[in-house]
Structure formats: structure tokens, C-alpha cells
């Protein structure tokens, strides 16, 4: 079991469910105060940590936050910026000034075109959900080798495991370089056989019928991890 499911009083809640607060806890993400009590606003598991009661949503859209490592692909270009799909409600901008290249105005296609993938970091998110990304930083780059898989932003913690235990094991067994981004996309580099191994494991989450980490998905994932 990883840290997501190690909290006390874990239970599945539905939007509108009242949550008892006997211990003077404070409300965390997914919980609102309504008429003096706590109310769940999303479907998910209720967890408690350091006096904060919060909700691990079972299925939610990725909301970018400043500092997040994300994998995106170019959807369109202007003369001085690229627009990226990072899996959130809004497209992210990558201005040429935040790219690692010395790009000239209007010559952006020399480096990246529509459809190209890149490893980015979210630089800034404004109050209107406008997202600005950067490619200046250690490890940030255009992705030109390997494959990108999708596991869902809710599943990344389970995929990584406690202190990276699951991820380490997958890396060792597959021999692949694996980069897990916070928007639920993973970048795999390695042999065909190794990539197939990782894909078999990530399929527990990427299968479109079960994109959320429900107990069955986690059970099957853990079973596969034991078998590695």
C-alpha cells in the first residue's frame, strides 16, 4: 500500500456527504464548510493527515499548479510562442524566451512543430487559469525518442509508490528510463521489450474503461508488481 491509502478513516464519499469532525480537524482539498459542518464536494476517498481532512478524488481533471512537471504536445504556434496541450482545461503557453534555444521571432518551427512532445515545467498559473510553461531547467527537453503513455493524474502516486518503490521496481525490471509527469503522462525510453513490460503494468490505469484507481485496479496493479 502506498501513502494515498494509508490515511485513517478511509472511506468513499459522494458529493454532498456530511463529514463528522469530532477531533477539531481543518478542511483540506475537496472539502467545504457548509452550515458549520464539513461536506464532501467530489467523489473520492476521505483521508486525514496532520490535522487536515481531505479528499483524494477518484476521477478529476488535471489542474496545473506552479512547479508541476508536465508532458505536453504542441497544438498550435504563434510567431513567438508554442501552445501546448498538457491535459488540463486550458492550453499552456511556452514563450520563445522560456525555450532552451536561441529562437528568432517567426522561426519557431525550426525547433518544434505541431504534434511534438516536450517535457515542461509549469512556471506560472494566473487567477484566470492561464498557464505559462518553461523549458529552461534540468531535464526539460523536447521528447524525440521513446513513447508517451497516459495513466491519469489521479494514478501517478500509486504508480510511483511509497518513496518511489513501485517506479524503481518497474525501472529495474524493464530496463527503461521512465519519467512520470504530474499531468498523468509517462515518458518511456528503452528497448521494445522493456516498453511492453511497462505498458502492461500501466495498462491497469490507462485502460479507457477504468481510468480511475478503484480498489480492483489497485489490486490488479499490486498483483502485477509482486509478479515482476
Amino acid at each position: 500500500m502506498n501513502e494515498v491509502y494509508s490515511g485513517a478513516q478511509e472511506r468513499l464519499v459522494i458529493p454532498g456527504d456530511r463529514i463528522e469532525n469530532k477531533g477539531g480537524l481543518s478542511a483540506g482539498s475537496g472539502i467545504i464548510k457548509l452550515n458549520g459542518g464539513f461536506v464532501a464536494t467530489q467523489l473520492g476517498h476521505l483521508l486525514e493527515n496532520n490535522g487536515v481532512i481531505y479528499l483524494q478524488a477518484s476521477n478529476s481533471t488535471y489542474i496545473p499548479r506552479s512547479g508541476d512537471l508536465v508532458i505536453g504536445f504542441v497544438t498550435s504556434m504563434r510567431s513567438n510562442l508554442w501552445m501546448f496541450n498538457i491535459g488540463g482545461p486550458f492550453e499552456a503557453l511556452l514563450p520563445m524566451s522560456l525555450s532552451p534555444w536561441n529562437t528568432q521571432f517567426g522561426d519557431l518551427e525550426e525547433h518544434m512543430i505541431v504534434g511534438d512532445y516536450a517535457l515542461l515545467r509549469v512556471q506560472e498559473v494566473d487567477s484566470q487559469h492561464g498557464v505559462v510553461c518553461t523549458m529552461k531547467g534540468i531535464g526539460l527537453r523536447k521528447i524525440s525518442t521513446g513513447v508517451v503513455e497516459f495513466i491519469g493524474s489521479n494514478s501517478t502516486k500509486i504508480f510511483i509508490g511509497v518513496e518511489g518503490s513501485n517506479l524503481q521496481k518497474i525501472k529495474e525490471k524493464s530496463g527503461c528510463r521512465i519519467t512520470v509527469a504530474e499531468n498523468g503522462r509517462i515518458w518511456l525510453e528503452g528497448s521494445e521489450e522493456g516498453i511492453s513490460t511497462v505498458r502492461r503494468i500501466s495498462a491497469h490505469f490507462s485502460n479507457s474503461n477504468t481510468p480511475y484507481p478503484n480498489p480492483n485496479t489497485i489490486k490488479n496493479f499490486n498483483k502485477d508488481m509482486e509478479g515482476l
Partner: peptide, 10 residues
């Protein structure tokens, strides 16, 4: 609710 959209009630 299935889509994970925050709601104050059903």
C-alpha cells in the same frame, strides 16, 4: 459526480 466535477450536493 462520476466526472469528478466538484459539487456541493447531488
Amino acid at each position: 459526480a462520476d466526472a469528478g466535477i466538484p459539487m456541493k450536493d447531488m
